[in-house]
Amino acid sequence: MDINAKMQKAFSDQITAELYSSNLYLEMAFWFRKEGWKGFANWMFKQSDEEKQHAMDMANFVLNRGGAVKIGTIEAVPNDYKEPREVFEKTMEHEKHVSELIHALAELAEDEHDRASVNFADKYIDEQVQEETSVRDILNLFRHRDGHTVATIDDIVGQREA
């Protein structure tokens, strides 16, 4: 069953949002590198790559169903931060926003009775739970390690492999 125009538009909008996310995390990685936080930069570079892969996965889904993808304007991302914790607080805000977008995509798929899109969106709902948990764990490190240095957190976060 081919994907309908309404779902194509919704997926194109989500693809644009995923590419914005990729750019946001790439900019954050650059900020961390500039400030000398190699571990945090490593985490953000990987996060940026992951978001770009999400966009590609969604685009392939639409194309495989006979649809077309139209990438919208990707707005400039912020690049001025004061400290590492602030960057991860902004990351959590952003991930919650992306979760809302994915839920809206899933709800539209349900309204359109597009079972394939519902199933596809469901995996990203699960992915967003993991994304928020990962960032929450980092924020918890900041909160619970007040007696330790941020450099210790940088080292822990830098151990991310995928």
Rank of each mutant, 00 (worst) to 15 (best):
E132R: 05
L105R: 00
H103V: 13
A68G: 09
A29F: 09
M58I: 06
I138C: 11
A76P: 06
D49C: 04
K6W: 09
F40V: 06
M92A: 09
H113A: 14
K123H: 12
Q53G: 04
E93C: 03
E127G: 06
D49N: 12
Q128E: 07
E83F: 13
Q14E: 09
P78A: 03
D80L: 10
K70E: 15
I71F: 05
F120W: 04
R115M: 11
D114N: 09
N23R: 10
A68F: 12
V118F: 02
N140T: 14
T149V: 09
H113N: 11
I71K: 08
V69R: 05
K70D: 11
D49S: 11
A5C: 07
N42R: 13
A10W: 02
A116Q: 03
M56H: 13
K38R: 10
H94P: 01
E127Q: 14
Q159N: 12
H144P: 00
R143K: 15
D2L: 08
M56G: 05
A109M: 03
V118T: 05
G72Y: 12
A121I: 08
D122F: 13
F30R: 13
Q14K: 12
A104R: 10
V129N: 08
R160P: 07
H103M: 12
K82I: 07
T91V: 02
S99H: 03
E132H: 07
A10T: 10
N119A: 08
M1A: 15
A106S: 06
R145L: 15
L19I: 12
K46T: 04
L19K: 08
Q8D: 14
N60E: 14
G158F: 13
T91W: 00
G66D: 13
H103W: 07
M58T: 07
V62L: 08
R136D: 05
